[in-house]
Design a protein around this nucleic acid. Structure first.
Ligand code: FES
Ligand code: FES
Lengths: 170, 170
DNA sequence: GGAATTTCAACACAATTTTATATGATTACT
DNA sequence: AGTAATCATATAAAATTGTGTTGAAATTCC
């Protein structure tokens, strides 16, 4: 699938959410809040936000009245930064970053392709800041409203994996 | 990482290998051969080649003297086809293909981005045929020879995962 | 016809990574 | 002190990434 991991997907939504609150003037949002709004488990959000904090994309405020907030304004944070922090890098294969990963790169045609594809993808993600994503979101919301095409439930959201839940009680 | 799975990587190398033999006029290559040349387990190759056969990208010939061969000439097989067969699709997230996967796509900014990024990536992979990859490979080999920059071992190859093998005998 | 070679099918198994959930300690505000 | 929040581990379920085995079916060669 060449799939984006859930960390990348959830993390992006987490950051978009924080960006929204940032714009609204709030300075600390608690994870419970984000968890409710985005329908992602708090426990998982706690794990996802750690690398974002280490990378100084978000700031944490401990104790009562604390929470998280963006470390910079949404227009100063690029999607590419978020993904690199959460996915390790935007590289499609290890040997693009780590030349020791596979020998025979001298004769491997695929290596060229993966490397260039990684660059193409990175360049694409580098175009967008959180501010851009916020703008897209607002435009979409306005469109959905005017269009009157409200989805029935609208509870869960992108990247959500709680679909096949056949395993019963656990 | 937005990583390409091993199936995509190994499968691409498998196809490049078949393409090489196809060009050389051989009409059936046995997996043992590919396994030795590419340093990928036969058992795993057997699993990987099944979808390629179903998708009619390779033909199988049973019995003694049999093996596998490309179903079409290398110039008629695009990298994108191979990856779509092995990775399910080139989509970065499920909701791009499956609109039921996540609700709230109406207001999800990320959805737009993932969808467009998937298209960018697919377009990139669509550029190359197996013939192109063969040409790249030959050019690289020639370069490596003339350059005299032979790597010490040169045994294993791209996408190979046999690195940290600390778990002892098994 | 029989032996050898090869794909094909169906499992069982294990290591690792991904994807989460659970529990409790730590910090800071009131 | 009490509460609200982050922070730190531990654990578990599931998917990915393989390897191993056993045999059946098809085809070639002798
Ligand atoms: S709706 Fe699927 S990514 Fe957000
Ligand atoms: S050398 Fe790493 S992909 Fe081939």
């Amino acid at each position: 699938m060449i799939k984006l991991s859930t960390k990348g997907r959830y993390g992006t939504r987490l950051m978009i959410n924080l960006a929204g609150h940032f714009k609204a003037g709030q300075d600390a949002v608690i994870l419970k809040n984000i968890s409710d709004e985005e329908d992602i488990s708090i426990r998982y959000l706690e794990q996802i936000i750690i690398p974002l904090k280490i990378a100084k994309l978000v700031k944490s405020i401990r104790g009562a009245g604390g929470g998280y907030t963006l470390a910079r304004s949404p227009s100063k944070i690029r999607l590419c930064e978020i993904l690199e922090v959460l996915e390790g890098s935007c590289c499609l294969v290890e040997c693009v970053d780590d030349s020791d990963f596979c020998r025979r790169t001298d004769s491997c045609a695929a290596h060229e392709i993966w490397a260039e594809a990684s660059r193409v993808l990175k360049d694409y993600f580098d175009q967008f800041t959180l501010q851009d994503l916020l703008s897209i979101q607002e435009k979409k919301k306005a469109q959905a409203r005017s269009h009157g095409s409200l989805r029935p439930a609208g509870r869960t959201s992108c990247g959500q994996a709680h679909r096949r839940r056949a395993s019963g009680a656990h």
